[in-house]
Write a protein that binds this DNA or RNA. Structure first.
Lengths: 178, 178
DNA sequence: TATTGTTATACTCTATAACTATA
DNA sequence: TATAGTTATAGAGTATAACAATA
């Protein structure tokens, strides 16, 4: 099928895959291309995401959702409503409350009451939160770069474009089911 | 508040992104390409994986790890050792025990003692498990195809190759840290 | 009536580590 | 000593649903 992947060494199994076992190795010769593509995508993502989670925990005693929430806030210095955060992070409201509670307790974010709608809160990073997040974001960027830096420019560009196409497709088709 | 559901119109934010909020929208103009690429990859994966999990739960009352375990077994009719499953699924041994317990209780897999090594078990699908899994796998393949079918052939091919490169990179670099 | 945010809850997934029985 | 599998535990992550206050 798809031989000649990358630098060929002797480590291929009979059907042309690398011998390192992973999720993709569950694909059989009769499985279709889209399925193989999906398994490869999932394997890549899980590998990298798992590493990021591990490092966030070990180096910063934090988690990916906490990191994500702070990342969202950094870009909007005036803060965001919790419902906005919920949409961006694609999780339900209650979870945002929980993460916000933790971060607020540690002095990294603060809730502000908004006059125009007394149900709403605006969440924003405190100065301490900004400093703490910038350290993490720097490290995070280095982790990512050290993983992606070996990619050829061609692959990097191809990935970015093709994933853009896929994301739009997925968002469109999934939203169409509501 | 949810205007702009679907078809593409003039709804781009200033920096050329779609207005639909997602994880990638946390990237700022000063963030580097690799980081944006990673966020896009993560968003794609989360969208699709979330949908798969939801459908597995609703249509088949099962979960992704259970599905994955059965998928691994289908390809090896004679069964696999639990430690092999653990490697392939990239989770620790205890978790394989847990999932296997569930599936065994439902009659979908069976443990066989192996004579040559009395510590080991071979796990394999029962006939009932095979039938049940094939139904799920068919549905699963349709879900995937209905999401990916809109991809251009060019993008599909580019994705597959570039992800192959990335997977190898990630596996190599992450393994190098042990 | 609908929305914002909170609370309570339950379940899956996962890693860690201590344990057993073999090898 | 090392490995195969089990058990127990704790925490992450998430969804669901009921609720209060406000729109």
């Amino acid at each position: 099928m798809h031989l000649n992947r990358l630098p060929m060494n002797a480590l291929h199994s009979l059907n042309g895959e690398l011998s390192r076992p992973d999720l993709e190795s569950r694909a059989g010769p009769d499985d279709h291309d889209d399925l193989r593509l999906w398994l490869r995508l999932l394997t890549c993502c899980n590998l990298i995401e798992g590493d990021i989670r591990r490092r966030l925990r070990i180096d910063f005693e934090t988690t990916l959702p906490r990191f994500d929430l702070m990342a969202q806030l950094l870009r909007v210095p005036e803060g965001m409503k919790m419902s906005e955060l919920s949409r961006h992070m694609m999780v339900t409201n209650g979870n945002i409350t929980g993460i916000t509670d933790q971060l607020e307790k540690e002095g990294l974010v603060e809730r502000l009451k908004v006059a125009s709608d007394r149900r709403s809160s605006i969440i924003r990073l405190t100065p301490k939160g900004k400093r703490a997040f910038k350290k993490m974001a720097d490290a995070h960027e280095h982790w990512i770069q050290s993983l992606f830096s070996g990619l050829s420019d061609k692959s990097r560009k191809a990935l970015f474009d093709a994933l853009g196409e896929l994301k739009l497709l997925a968002q469109t088709r999934l939203a169409a089911r509501d």
